[in-house]
Design a protein around this nucleic acid. Structure first.
Lengths: 239, 239
DNA sequence: AACTGTCAAGAGCACTGCTCTCGTTTTGTT
DNA sequence: AACAAAACGAGAGCAGTGCTCTTGACAGTT
């Protein structure tokens, strides 16, 4: 069986080496990386690379999946280090974990959360790894609901009526559908708040990564992100 | 002088025709549009286009400036139609105006708010048009402060203490610097809240445009955006 | 009428994704 | 052990790209 694995193992090694070189080129070339350049750096001929990835888009797909998985793993380990009962701490750890990974891998973040590549259509195989980060939030909400730490607006102490508008009816059905599929125990009001915080979190990271903070927030970007996280945590009801 | 203008006028017409065709190709090709394809569609030879735009990046810059201006104008006209005293209405109009433009011009929105183009460095000439939308928010905040409708957290009725975390000291200096340069009358707490709402607004539009709502929010995206706008308006204190 | 600057066209360079063919090597089967 | 089948790397080639340079034609100025 080792004889059988000789070729397979070389293939696996070359496959991941191609991906590694492509990842490195991603940093300088962005989404329009060159298969020929990868082959050149590998000492191979361009047509040989096509034995491993049938097209450039397939290479991109492999990279996207890897990046989703890496980001998901980074967020998960950051979140797992916090006491389960500390909902706010888990939320903060998740948010900072995602930002840290994004700052360490800006090109990769742009690949998965930036503008869609023109002719590229993400296949179904990418949705699984993509939901790893959102699953963290949903787990957070479900845990909060289970322990009673997270309650809907009306019953929540310390929050005055009228501050937060109620979920409109048009949204209700859709939110219920999402909850039924992903987190049946979470009421729609809490799910809506979680979604708002989730979007804000990625919005801040995206703004920072894409240079929209230039000439604005320069020295205290981490503190800014932390503040946004805490604001949204307060809105969601995490404490 | 008309004799002199014959050439200049033809030049201007051709310049805008090139930009128009490039805009149209932007929709299908994304940021990596082809100068040769533009020339082909124009019945010209590629080298002739270089008389009008010294490089592909310069064409891109021209498009970016046009898009920023268009988005800014769309947001301004939407906001200008609302009664000056109606801060919430102005905020909603701005937000929906931006979203409407983005939905009508998704490729253009991706160009200016999506991932930065790999080798491309936006020149200084783009920052002016880029700030048109943020100026709307700052004007909104300044108006609210001037009329007394917008007040800092502690004095604001209907909001309980502890819901919104205070601005951390590290952020304070930076926020004061921004305020001093752009909106001297707006206190840092209100500016911080406005910034949060601003990021959330663009975050929602970006998520929707970049396909992150697929299999989640499908039928009520406008209502969702509207709800987000109202949530953030409540947080900022607009009413 | 002569000069000067602008223009479109064409050839050419180096690059890209991708396909096809060719000889070689490895694999699985008889 | 022998052999067919599959996998592999190399090379040539096609159509496309951004960009540069040169050439010849035209317009505006003096």
């Amino acid at each position: 069986m080792t004889a059988k694995n000789i070729r397979a193992r070389v293939r696996d090694e070359l496959t991941s080496e191609i991906k590694a070189i492509a990842r490195r080129q991603l940093a300088t070339e962005g989404a329009n990386l060159s298969l020929r350049a990868v082959a050149r750096e590998l000492g191979m001929v361009s047509s040989a690379v096509y034995r491993y990835f049938p097209s450039r888009d397939d290479l991109l797909t492999a990279l996207i999946i890897d990046c989703y998985d890496e980001l998901g793993a980074a967020a998960e380990t950051a979140e797992a280090a916090v006491d389960r009962a500390d909902l706010l701490g888990r939320w903060l750890a998740t948010g900072h974990g995602i930002r840290d990974w994004a700052l360490a891998n800006p090109a990769e973040y742009a690949l998965i959360y930036g503008s869609p590549v023109p002719g590229y259509k993400a296949p179904e195989t990418t949705v699984g790894p993509a939901t790893r980060t959102t699953d963290l939030l949903l787990g957070l909400l479900a845990d909060g609901v289970a322990t009673g730490a997270l309650v809907a607006d009306a019953a929540e102490p310390g929050r005055a009526a009228g501050t937060a508008p109620p979920v409109p009816v048009e949204l209700g059905a859709e939110l219920d559908r999402i909850a039924a599929a992903a987190c049946p125990t979470v009421p729609r009001e809490i799910l809506a708040r979680g979604l708002t915080g989730w979007i804000q979190m990625f919005g801040v990271v995206t703004f920072e990564l894409f240079g929209r903070f230039q000439n604005m927030i320069e020295d205290s970007r981490r503190a800014f992100h932390d503040h946004q996280l805490r604001v949204m945590a307060g809105y969601i009801g995490l404490r």
